[in-house]
């Protein structure tokens, strides 16, 4: 116990008041967290209850329909693809930003501003670019390269392009934050010992930044499975994803139980990827600590 705590305790006349003080300080956040927990319990419970009895029928109905299975699998497939593309595209960007000699703050704004702008706006931006009367098609028509507009949205391609652009800041920021706290001297040591630059990169820099890649992958995958706006606006009605389906169940058919079931499945699909990744990350950091010491 530090000096301040003792002084604090003395001024508050005994331990009882101090405990109550802490409870009071925590109360507002605990209320918010409590309501969050209640909502999750309610969500899960309502997906297992049918006509007042415990039942798995919502789940068995879901998996017995091929079109629903497609939606579920497509969501996972698209999200994995988006996460992989974000790693491939985001890593070089983070690397370039890390090595950038000038004012990094200006580059940060270029990543953070698009990241914070509403998803609706960014998705609309891609509609203006990819649409049948969009930037690319207008340009191609003007240049005389195509007769009819090329179809770039209302299919999975459009969804993937939009989601990668929307989610890549999570990846760049996760990787960059690991890079910025790397010891630059490790690279210098490797280089001074005569390692070639690609060798230094693959043997030193890349392994040390894997935790950033893992964090970024988790975030991008989770956000992608839970997306609604981008799949609806860029994917259209044919190639639906879980988010789209849930929104339809709620808004069009008012089927909250089915939406809850879908939400719980989505949660499980998220955890199935996130928990192993978290374990891997923990193992990795323990391994590196041992090697380091």
């Amino acid at each position: 116990m530090s000096l301040t705590d003792q002084a604090f305790k003395k001024k508050m006349h005994g331990p009882g008041r101090e405990v109550w003080g802490r409870v009071l300080l925590l109360a507002p956040a605990m209320v918010l967290l409590g309501l969050f927990c209640v909502s999750v319990v309610q969500l899960i419970a309502s997906s297992f209850i049918e006509e007042g009895r415990l039942s798995l029928s919502l789940y068995t109905d879901f998996f017995s329909r091929a079109d629903y299975r497609d939606i579920f699998l497509r969501t996972i497939r698209v999200s994995m693809l988006v996460a992989a593309l974000c790693v491939l595209l985001g890593y070089p960007v983070a690397y370039a930003m890390w090595r950038y000699k000038g004012n990094r703050s200006h580059l940060m704004i270029l990543i953070i501003l698009p990241w914070l702008v509403s998803i609706v706006v960014r998705t609309y931006g891609w509609m203006v670019i990819l649409g049948p009367k969009g930037l690319i098609n207008e340009f191609l028509a003007w240049a005389g390269l195509v007769e009819r507009p090329v179809r770039m949205m209302f299919n999975t391609t459009g969804v993937v392009v939009g989601l990668v652009h929307i989610l890549i800041p999570f990846m760049i920021i996760s990787i960059l934050s690991v890079m910025l706290h790397l010891d630059r001297r490790l690279e210098e040591a490797s280089a001074s010992l005569g390692a070639r630059s690609y060798h230094t990169f693959f043997r030193v820099t890349l392994p040390l930044t894997v935790p950033g890649i893992i964090t970024g992958t988790m975030l991008v995958y989770l956000m992608s499975t839970g997306a609604i706006v981008t799949p609806v606006l860029l994917g259209g009605v044919r190639d639906r994803m879980m988010g789209t389906q849930m929104y339809q169940e709620v808004i069009q058919t008012f089927n909250f139980q089915k939406a809850s079931m879908l939400a719980f499945l989505l949660l499980l699909a998220g955890l199935a990827v996130v928990l192993p990744l978290q374990m891997l990350e923990r193992k990795l950091s323990r391994f590196m600590d041992q090697r380091g010491s």
């Binding site: 309501l35 969500l43 988010g243 709620v250 909250f256 939400a263 949660l267």
Partner: peptide, 28 residues
Amino acid sequence: YFEVAVMTPLLFPHAALGVAMLSLLMMI
């Protein structure tokens, strides 16, 4: 535990969070 709990909502895909929040507001 509190520090872990306070970050948990970040692990929820937004669509699932939306349905959960809707069921909360329907209830209270």
